[in-house]
Design a protein around this nucleic acid. Structure first.
Length: 563
RNA sequence: CGGAGUGUAGCGCAGCCUGGUUAGCGCACCUGGUUUGGGACCAGGGGGUCGAAGGUUCGAAUCCUUUCACUCCGACCA
């Protein structure tokens, strides 16, 4: 390709709302362009990167026996009603009607569609296992799209679904997918961690996320310094915090505490560590058909993890509970204690058997001192947010918290969808059984941004070998110089003949301009054809290090074929 | 979905408060020339329904109403 012919409009200025390097450089380098909120066009360079990532994904999946299909992007709402997700998915699901008034959705994920494809077509255990995937456009009407390709509304995802006759076989495939996803990310040149995850709305038992480590990540992940434990903060566990209660003495009873409502106020009022206080967190739990106030009790020094809390009470989501809602539920804000009646409540596991504690007394201006959880039958759940410095529940090592970007997610799905959609097969005994399923996703378009997020400098992108649109760029320092031009053309033809993906910058521009574009594009290396050519020399530039190396003009072609 | 902003040339912005001839600036673009190892210079040039609709007015980019889009903070987010 000649740069003079390539549609790659580079700019000096970034769009004013672009903050992340990936967003800035992809737009400035002419890889992508926004067409609507959270919707992007791919220009030739962006499309090349996308295709390279897509083919790495495809190669690795096909190598382990997965089969590619392509499902309709538009899905009849009927299927979503059948699975029960039509109501649950919320506003993210874009719904619309056709001319005949039939309802459709733009697929945000395709469990329903894939199960529908397989049901009544796969009828026997002899046809299992089966792992089908697609690489397709998805649409989620995100409340607030941002960060360029990282959180768009329209995006491209690889989503795979496997069908099995048993949980054991599904788990075998799940493990295989974990390995395969690792290989894909390795090939793309990304540093990542596999972390334990919350299964979320999609349902199912085990799930793991593939997190690319990046400062600008939206997810918090907990990593153990001592072993290989890693988890999304939403699912992270820790060893119970050690609390030394040996020299804490309390005489049980109510205590007048006017105006003391928060944990901080309470701690200074009693001159005691928040470890011995019981924090009551009230939330408005939103269910498909109603809303109600739910209480969560945890140690004063801990923070509620909302995802864990939502899972505990089975709510679709949790929202802030207003003071009025609390009072309506018969609660006394600021003075709520675990023995309160008439409200759904959960207590953190680490409070089990704890004593003595100070908690709300469920009446104004009063706390109860010397409270004991010993023998109390609450609904104990893991509710705390793990923090940096906590101890690993496996090895006791120190836990740290870092930022990551989710690029892959694998689920042990079970029979949730096959049952809902009545997708069954005949087992070895001739009995109808729902398929045991797994589901596996990779954010393909997100990976385009993620590669840049992890590989860039202040001048632009630095593509990895597997992701770069071109392996080498030939820069003619002065395109009007016949000697340079002839040499460059010959080298260009030579490399192309040998199958190299090469871009020739034949534009009549100044040297600095071309170098800046090269750095912005971020191809791994360039040959600079310039003044040294008279002495039979050209230069080889490495984009990563920006180091230049003088090479004999005759030898550069063979040098490039090595890399 | 709450709160706050912004829509003027491809991009970034000024002009609006205080209405008044032909709506400006930088970058980009086109032509000619000089340049050619780090985003050059000179000269000339093209490009705008001022987001849209309605209203006030002799007169609206500017004031008013409605509407649409985009952005930011938050909530939300397999």
């Amino acid at each position: 390709m000649r740069l003079s012919r390539l549609f790659a409009p580079t700019t000096k200025e970034a769009p004013k709302d672009a903050v992340l390097p990936s967003h800035i450089f992809l737009v400035r380098g002419g890889f992508i362009a926004q067409i609507g909120s959270g919707i992007y066009n791919y220009l030739p360079l962006g499309k090349m990167v996308l295709d390279r990532i897509r083919s790495v994904v495809k190669e690795e999946l096909d190598a382990v026996g997965n089969q590619e299909v392509l499902l309709g992007f538009v899905t009849p709402s009927e299927l979503w009603k059948e699975s029960g997700r039509y109501d649950k998915f919320g506003k993210e699901l874009l719904r619309f009607k056709d001319r005949k008034n039939n309802e459709f959705v733009l697929g945000p994920t395709h469990e329903e569609a894939m199960v529908d494809l397989v049901r009544n077509r796969v009828k026997s255990y002899k046809q299992l296992p089966l792992n089908l995937y697609q690489i397709n456009t998805k649409f989620r009407d995100e409340a607030r799209p941002r960060y360029g390709l990282l959180r768009g509304r329209e995006f491209i995802m690889k989503d795979g679904y496997s069908f099995h006759e048993s949980v054991e076989d599904m788990q075998r495939e799940y493990a295989l997918m974990e390995k395969t996803y690792g290989r894909i990310l390795d090939r793309l040149g990304l540093r990542y961690r596999v972390v334990e995850a919350d299964s979320g709305a999609i349902g199912g038992s085990g799930s793991k996320e593939f997190m690319v480590l990046a400062d600008n990540g939206e997810d918090d992940i907990v990593i153990c310094e001592g072993c290989d434990y890693a988890a999304n903060i939403e699912a992270a566990k820790r060893a119970p915090r050690e609390v030394d209660a040996s020299d804490v003495e309390m005489t049980p009873g109510s205590f007048h505490t006017p105006g003391v409502r928060t944990i901080e106020e309470l701690a200074s009022f009693f001159r005691i560590s928040p470890d011995f206080l019981v924090k009551a967190v009230a939330k408005k739990a939103i269910y498909p058909d109603h809303e109600e106030v739910v209480l969560f009790f945890l140690r004063g020094s801990d923070t509620l993890q909302e995802t864990k809390a939502a899972t505990a009470c089975g709510a679709l989501e949790l929202a802030e509970a207003s003071k009025e809602a609390l009072e309506e539920a018969g609660l006394v804000p600021g003075y709520i204690g675990p023995d309160v009646q008439g409200v759904q409540k959960y207590v953190d596991l680490e409070l089990k058997e704890q004593a003595p504690m100070i908690c709300g007394d469920n009446k104004p201006d009063s706390h109860y001192v010397g409270y004991s959880f010993k023998g109390k039958a609450f609904d104990y759940r893991d509710l705390v947010t793990v923090e940096a410095g906590d101890r690993c529940h496996r090895c006791g090592g120190r836990l740290t918290v870092t930022k990551g970007i989710e690029v892959g997610h694998i689920f042990q799905l079970g029979t949730r969808y096959s049952e809902a959609l009545q997708a069954t097969f005949l087992d070895r005994n001739g009995k109808a059984q729902p398929f045991v399923m797994g589901t596996y996703g990779i954010g393909v378009s997100r990976l385009v941004a993620v590669v840049v997020e992890q590989h860039h400098d202040e001048r632009g992108c630095i593509w990895t070998e597997e992701t770069t649109p071109f392996e080498v760029m030939i820069i003619l320092s002065n395109a009007k110089d016949d000697t340079q031009r002839e040499y460059g053309e010959t080298l260009y033809a030579q490399l192309r003949e040998k199958g190299k993906r090469v871009l020739l910058d034949d534009r009549n521009e100044r040297f600095g301009f071309k170098m800046s574009d090269f750095e912005l594009f971020g191809f791994p290396r360039a040959v600079i054809v310039g003044k040294g050519l008279k002495e039979g020399k050209v230069e080889l530039v490495d984009r990563g290090t920006l180091q230049k190396e003088e090479v004999s003009a005759d030898a550069v072609a063979s040098r490039l074929m090595e890399s």
